[in-house]
Design a protein around this nucleic acid. Structure first.
Lengths: 116, 116
DNA sequence: ATATCTGGCATCCTTTAGGTAACTGGTATA
DNA sequence: TATACCAGTTACCTAAAGGATGCCAGATAT
């Protein structure tokens, strides 16, 4: 009699995956930046202007992390002066389903908490 | 010609919902606690033993937040000594789809990042 | 009698996220 | 010649999250 296991991934491992995900998109700025870039802001200062209130220091740090996670692509054009362009990657689209679920849940959750 | 809008919710509002969601489940301990309670740990010390490394101070704080968000239910039995029981709510199950998506994405993301 | 368990709380400490402000070197503009 | 733009960087500061340790008061177990 074989051991029937629908999912061999242990609970601990699942929590680790979940926390990886959280790490990638958590924080005050990651999503607003992704949205801004996705909507067309590609230059550093453009993004900074789109994302209200972010400082250049934080933007710089966040963009680096998003790039490491392959959600945004940074291209340097070697003219003079060198210009830099940020775009969202195709991979970034894989976030869509998950993000949609999170928005749904959050929307519903407001009502749930408000209700007596 | 009417304005066709599939979703009237503004991007800013969607980000707010998303960040509500993140707030509810983010942090080092929220998910591990939920899992522990869901799997049957109901007494304070049981949960603390299940969730490796958590201190009573932090556990106490996190349980309060989870209770406020209606994900866990706290029942006090007024015997002597009074005992306290934590359980996950039915509402807690609404997290499932979303959490499953997040686990999937996180799992895939590891491979994505490791790949050259 | 002593130790241990219960559900926490109080105090102090460290780490991390994020904010403030100034600055850089090169280029273009008034 | 002075000013502003670009893509950031540096040093310093604050607030919040989380960790370490010790404690309580009542009850049960040894």
């Amino acid at each position: 009699m074989p051991d029937i296991q629908i999912d061999k991934t242990s609970v601990e491992q699942q929590i680790r995956y979940l926390q990886d995900t959280l790490y990638v998109i958590s924080g005050k700025w990651k999503l607003p930046i992704l949205v801004a870039v996705h909507e067309g802001s590609s230059r550093f200062r453009d993004i900074q202007r789109s994302v209200n209130g972010i400082t250049s220091k934080v933007l710089s740090k966040e963009l680096k992390e998003l790039e490491q996670n392959k959600l945004v692509v940074r291209k340097v054009y070697d003219k003079s002066p060198p210009t830099v362009e940020y775009t969202t990657s195709n991979y970034c689209d894989t976030l869509q389903k998950m993000v949609a679920e999170m928005i749904d849940w959050g929307k519903n959750h407001r009502d749930k908490i408000r209700e007596k």
